[in-house]
Amino acid sequence: MAAVKELQRDLENKANDLNKLQKDIAKNHQVRKKYTIQLGENELVLKELDLLNEEANVYKLIGPVLVKQDLAEANANVRKRIDYISAELKRLDATLQDLEEKQNSKKEAIFKLQQRIQALQAGKGKA
């Protein structure tokens, strides 16, 4: 009886952990999505900047004001931003994989626990 209770508590804890992991994964997915969109936008900007001629005026919106920027500088900034986003995406992928592995192992553990509880209860039912 006590064993069953303990197992059930264990199961509950594991289920909570799994829930947390799944939430993390969902959050990770969202962040990833945001970054992918930003990456696309930045690539578009870079393309447009490349198409501009040298003497075109480029501004950056900082807060409420437009600040004039050098084209080369803007170009470099956008490239840097793209690099950053790519690195971030890679990092997110790695963490996502890690989380998914953890989730799978948790799922397996929970499955095993459930089986044990069932076996115990079946044994009790017979006895």
């Binding site: 447009e48 501009l52 501004y59 803007a74």
Partner: peptide, 13 residues
């Protein structure tokens, strides 16, 4: 025109 290219960058066009 001030064209928004994205990511807060504008260009005079």
């Amino acid at each position: 025109f001030m064209v928004l290219l994205g990511e807060g960058y504008y260009a005079e066009r």
